[in-house]
Amino acid sequence: MRPGQSGIVVQLQGGHGLVNRLSALGIIPGKRITKISSTLMRGPVTVEVDRARVAIGFGMASRILVQLDKGPTK
């Protein structure tokens, strides 16, 4: 996903803990999210979901599978 792109969350690949924490912030399958930016050296990624901005650690962010608006891939 590039900054500015948006898509629909398809799946959260991870254990119960990860799914719990992400969903608490509204990141659940079926939700539309937009990537705002990422930082250097695998730093956190900022996304927008439901008009709120959330910063997510790189590892966690890479487990969010998104169906991009045009074509698949993450």
């Binding site: 924490r21 709120a52 901005r53 959330v54 966690m60």
Partner: peptide, 10 residues
């Protein structure tokens, strides 16, 4: 150390 996961307020 868990990863960062925070809401960024406007």
């Amino acid at each position: 150390t868990p990863e960062l996961l925070i809401e960024i307020p406007p």
